[in-house]
Simulated assay, not measured.
Amino acid sequence: MTVTTVDMLSSAITFGDGGRVEAAEPRMTEDDGAWQLATFRVETDADVHADHWEVHPAAEEAVCCLSGALRVYFRPESPDGDETEVRLSAGGAVIVPRGRWHRLELDEPSVVMSVALRRGSRQEKRSDV
């Protein structure tokens, strides 16, 4: 039996077909069909692509704040609507609904963990920046 250790701040863990679990390069939009658990140490809004919206059409995403504090914004569902803001502090998480555009902004340097199926994920530059 081979035992593998993984540095979660430089690698991700993917969960594939047939119960396959392995370390992989963290990715935001590429798809190999596997669920990804990734942890990121982030210092600035640029580290969390605050200037972009992101969407995951294949599944919901869990965004977890392990340390620090951040805000998750959801794009308005109608043109005249307002963004919805969810504040997370250490130990908090939010489930991003499937197909819902979202973005992150930091209140302070943080460690963020996400669990997502990246199939079909896209990013779109914000027009209001």
Rank of each mutant, 00 (worst) to 15 (best):
T2L: 08
T2P: 09
T4G: 01
D7Q: 07
M8T: 13
M8N: 09
M8C: 13
A12F: 01
I13W: 05
I13V: 15
I13S: 08
I13T: 14
T14G: 11
G16L: 06
G19P: 13
R20M: 14
A24R: 09
R27H: 14
R27E: 10
R27M: 10
M28K: 12
T29V: 15
T29Y: 04
T29F: 12
G33E: 11
G33N: 09
W35C: 08
Q36P: 06
L37D: 07
L37C: 12
L37V: 13
T39D: 00
F40C: 06
R41G: 11
R41H: 09
R41M: 08
T44A: 04
A46P: 01
D47Q: 07
H49K: 14
A50R: 04
E54D: 10
E54Y: 04
V55Q: 03
A58Q: 02
E60D: 14
E61Y: 05
V63D: 03
V63T: 10
C64T: 15
C65Y: 02
L66E: 07
S67A: 07
S67L: 00
G68L: 00
A69Y: 01
A69L: 00
A69M: 01
L70Q: 01
L70R: 02
R71M: 07
R71S: 12
V72I: 12
V72N: 03
Y73W: 11
P76Y: 01
P76S: 06
E77Q: 11
S78Q: 10
S78C: 00
D80V: 03
G81R: 01
D82F: 04
E83V: 09
E83W: 10
E85Q: 08
R87W: 04
L88F: 03
S89H: 08
A90P: 03
G91C: 04
G92M: 13
G92L: 03
V94A: 10
V94C: 09
V94Q: 00
I95Y: 03
I95P: 05
P97C: 08
P97K: 06
P97L: 06
R98T: 14
R100Y: 11
W101Y: 13
W101D: 10
H102L: 02
R103Q: 09
R103T: 15
R103N: 07
L104S: 05
E105S: 15
E105Y: 00
L106I: 09
L106N: 04
L106T: 05
E108W: 00
E108V: 07
P109Q: 06
P109I: 06
S110T: 09
M113H: 08
V115W: 14
V115L: 15
V115F: 15
L117D: 12
R118Q: 14
R118E: 07
G120I: 13
G120P: 13
S121W: 00
R122K: 11
R122H: 09
Q123G: 15
K125T: 14
K125Y: 07
K125P: 15
R126T: 06
R126I: 10
R126E: 10
R126C: 11
S127E: 15
S127H: 10
